[in-house]
């Protein structure tokens, strides 16, 4: 279900591409340190997006350092150094990968799913101990989703996933606010735009807009994944939210466009300290480009 929220590389400035890579590599490194070296495969474009979106509002400039990588130890790359936002995204990467593997173990890929969920179980439990409220919320929503898929309830599954992402965005923002002690004197107001550190009302506004954007993005991710799997699910007679609809593809495309517009609308009202171009690229160019590729059945390119 992951890897759909990505930038459109040909439309990125080189500068923004380098920033994106530095956050991606930073997240990968943090997963290695915090979760485990073997678990670094859990890094995703989606969690990179969450990291950069939260870092975009940080009042402290992220520290960039140059380090080698397991894949290329002799070439030093720019990476964003450890930051509470990256810790948060690393924990979430582990939890989502674990839940996804558990899901795979149940039906689609039993051997691979079981092996990888075993590898991730210990770290996922550790994360669950460190962030109990968030992890239990994610698990509760995922089990609701499973109940919908089994036909026990008739709720909209997209809303379920939307709720998860809304919570991730809002909790992430709360965590960022809590981790930064900002003195108003440190900042010179350059415009009348609200900044989250100016007042509690402004912080609330940011949280609301991020939550709404997260909810729409969650719906988008769920639908694009369903659309991507539709052909295969129909062939294998697996459950798919679009399979029962007469014109499932058209309905999905319409709802995807609506979700893209909602994400854009909400994120566009916020004031960014940095990474504005990158967020803009991902939301207004990356999401529609991914939708078009999935609609056409084209593979998604690597970044």
């Amino acid at each position: 279900m992951f890897g759909y929220v990505r930038p459109e590389k040909p439309d990125l400035l080189m500068r923004d591409f380098a920033l994106y890579k530095s956050i991606y590599c930073g997240l990968c490194k943090v997963i290695g340190k915090r979760i485990g070296q073997l678990q670094r495969f859990t890094v995703t474009y989606d969690m990179t997006f969450l990291s950069l979106l939260l870092l975009a509002f940080s009042t402290v400039e992220p520290v960039v350092k140059y380090e080698g990588c397991v894949l290329n130890p002799f070439k030093k790359k720019a990476i964003v150094a450890e930051h509470p936002v990256l810790d948060y995204a690393a924990d979430l990467s582990c939890i989502f990968a674990y839940e996804s593997m558990k899901d795979d173990a149940k039906d689609e890929k039993p051997i691979r799913g079981r092996a990888l969920s075993l590898l991730l179980r210990r770290s996922a439990n550790k994360v669950a101990r460190e962030r109990p409220a968030l992890v239990s919320y994610i698990r509760e929503k995922l089990s609701q989703l499973e109940a919908i898929e089994k036909g026990f309830t008739i709720h909209d599954p997209t809303d379920c996933f939307g709720d998860i992402l809304a919570r991730l965005f809002k909790d992430g923002f709360d965590m960022l606010v809590a981790s930064e002690v900002v003195s108003k004197c440190d900042h010179v107001a350059v415009s009348n735009d609200p900044r989250w550190y100016e007042s509690e009302q402004d912080a609330d506004l940011y949280k609301t807009l991020l939550g709404d954007a997260g909810h729409a993005l969650g719906r988008w991710v769920y639908l694009i994944d369903a659309l991507d799997d539709l052909k295969r699910d129909l062939a294998k007679n697996n459950w798919n939210p679009l399979s029962k609809l007469e014109n499932g593809r058209e309905v999905a495309e319409k709802r995807l466009i609506e979700a893209e517009e909602t994400v854009d609308r909400n994120l566009a009202l916020l004031t960014y300290e940095r990474y504005g171009g990158l967020v803009y690229n991902i939301v207004t160019i990356g999401l529609p480009a991914t939708r078009s590729r999935v609609m056409l059945g084209e593979p998604l390119p690597n970044i």
């Binding site: 735009d193 994120l267 009202l269 300290e273 940095r274 504005g276 171009g277």
Partner: peptide, 8 residues
Amino acid sequence: WGHGGRHW
């Protein structure tokens, strides 16, 4: 949207 660009 530049490097120091603040606005969406």
